[in-house]
Amino acid sequence: MSLTYCGKLYRALNPVFAREPMSGRGAELYGGRFNPKGVPALYASTSVHTALREANQVGDLQPTTLVCYRARIEMVFDAADMTAVAAAGLDEASLADPAWRDQMRTTGEASTQRFARELIAQGYNGLRVRSFAKGSGPSDINLVLWRWGNSASSRLELIDDEDRLG
């Protein structure tokens, strides 16, 4: 199921990547739950609290830079549609599987990364999926973006009116 997301999005970034909040470089270098290595992605959340949980999933809170975007993203796959997720060969447990990194190391690609690669090939700009970070619940929502920028179908604008990030 495809939807259009319009609204604000939040990211809690490692300060190493804070000067490039539009790059998706960290996810591209290391791979993420919903992007294989080599594929840039922006992992954003619909709330500040969810963004902070996502960025600090291991141990104590680490230094973090919080950014906000204005977004209008068309062609977003809605993972809340479990019929559509099942048609792709997954279920909620496989979306939430904490062993995705182990899968990536042993087989080269986690099942959720394969799912993302197939969605990208079908023309999706992103994925709306609940957060699986510790302490999150069904109302904690993420948008994983594979295409973003200035185009009408995947517009993402960093809110930095005072040019604080240079």
Rank of each mutant, 00 (worst) to 15 (best):
A110L: 07
E28H: 11
W148G: 05
P63E: 14
K37E: 07
A96W: 08
L66K: 13
M82A: 12
P98T: 12
P15M: 05
W100H: 04
S47V: 02
S111Y: 01
A121C: 11
R130W: 08
P98D: 11
S111T: 08
R128Y: 11
Q103F: 10
E118C: 03
H49V: 01
G89A: 11
Y5F: 15
V16A: 00
F115S: 02
T46Y: 00
A99V: 13
R147W: 02
E162L: 15
Q113A: 01
Y5D: 13
G24D: 00
A84G: 01
E20T: 09
F115D: 04
G7F: 00
S2Y: 11
L66G: 12
Q103R: 10
L52M: 15
E109T: 09
I120K: 01
R164I: 07
A71I: 01
N150Q: 15
V16N: 13
M75Q: 10
R117K: 12
A110S: 13
Q62G: 10
L145P: 08
A41C: 09
D160N: 04
G137T: 08
R25W: 06
V39Q: 14
V85C: 03
R155A: 08
S154P: 00
V76K: 05
N125D: 05
V48I: 14
E157M: 11
G108E: 02
E54S: 12
T106W: 04
T65A: 10
G149P: 03
S151Y: 02
W148K: 03
D78I: 03
D60E: 15
G38C: 10
L66R: 07
V58P: 02
D78K: 00
L61Y: 11
Y30Q: 09
E54I: 10
G32P: 08
G59M: 11
D163V: 02
R105H: 12
A86G: 14
G31C: 06
L42D: 06
G126D: 01
S154C: 15
Y69N: 04
Y5M: 05
R70I: 12
Q62W: 04
T106G: 04
L119N: 07
Y69D: 09
T4P: 08
I120V: 12
A88N: 11
C6I: 13
N142R: 06
R117L: 09
V85R: 04
S23P: 04
L90Q: 00
K37C: 04
Q113W: 10
R72S: 13
W146L: 05
F115Q: 05
R114S: 09
Q57N: 14
M82F: 12
I141G: 00
C6V: 15
C6Q: 14
R101C: 08
T46C: 01
H49D: 05
L158R: 07
T46I: 02
V58K: 14
Y43D: 01
R70W: 07
N35D: 07
S151E: 13
